[in-house]
Amino acid sequence: MLKKTSFPIAKIHVPVKRIKTLDQEKVLEIAESILENGQTTPIRVRKDGERFILIEGFHRLEALRSLGEESIVGYLVGARLH
């Protein structure tokens, strides 16, 4: 079972192909929701040396970043073996 953990936003790397999918309007909506209700859905990251690679939750990450937050709640998952 995955355990919720707090991750420093500055140490989360977003893959380039994910950055291209950024929808600023969606980030704004999520930021407003976070202000009202807090972060309700954790992101998912995997460890890569000293940093973390974002797997899921790009818009949540950007919403919290836009609000000036320094950490985000998420799950640390293992890399999938193919």
Rank of each mutant, 00 (worst) to 15 (best):
K3L: 00
V73Y: 01
D23V: 00
T5S: 09
R51F: 14
M1H: 11
H59L: 13
I55T: 10
H82F: 11
I53R: 01
A10G: 11
H82Q: 14
F52P: 06
F52Y: 15
L2D: 01
E62C: 14
K3V: 06
D48N: 13
Q24M: 12
T41D: 06
Q39P: 11
F7K: 01
A63M: 03
H13Y: 14
T21C: 08
E29V: 11
L54K: 14
L81E: 15
G38E: 07
S6Y: 10
N37T: 08
G68I: 01
L81F: 15
R44P: 00
I53V: 12
L54P: 09
R60P: 05
E70S: 13
S66W: 05
N37C: 05
K26G: 00
S66I: 00
R46L: 15
E50H: 04
D23M: 05
S71L: 01
V27A: 10
L54F: 08
V27C: 09
R18W: 09
S66N: 07
E36M: 09
I9G: 07
I9P: 12
L81P: 12
V45I: 13
K3D: 00
T41H: 06
P42T: 00
D48S: 14
R18L: 15
M1C: 09
L81K: 11
A63V: 05
S6E: 11
L28E: 15
T5K: 12
A63E: 07
F58T: 05
L54Y: 06
S33D: 13
P8G: 00
V77W: 00
E62W: 11
E32K: 15
V27Q: 07
R60T: 13
Y75G: 04
T21Q: 14
I72S: 05
I43L: 09
H13N: 14
K11N: 14
H82A: 15
S71D: 12
K20F: 05
I30R: 03
E29Y: 08
I12A: 04
E25W: 08
I72F: 04
L64A: 03
H59E: 11
E32V: 01
K20D: 11
K26W: 06
A63H: 02
A10H: 07
I53K: 09
F52D: 03
I34M: 01
V45R: 06
V14Q: 02
K26L: 03
L76G: 02
I30Y: 11
E69V: 02
F7P: 08
E36D: 08
R60N: 14
N37Q: 04
R44E: 12
G74Y: 06
E36R: 14
T21M: 15
T41Y: 08
H59N: 13
I19N: 02
L67M: 09
P8Q: 02
R60V: 04
E32S: 13
G68T: 05
I19T: 11
K4M: 03
G68Y: 01
K20C: 10
G78C: 05
H82N: 13
G49P: 04
D48F: 08
K20M: 10
L76I: 08
G74P: 02
I34N: 00
S71V: 10
L22T: 15
E25A: 06
S71H: 06
L67S: 02
L28W: 06
S66Q: 08
I12T: 08
S33N: 15
E62T: 11
R65A: 06
S6Q: 07
D48A: 14
V77D: 12
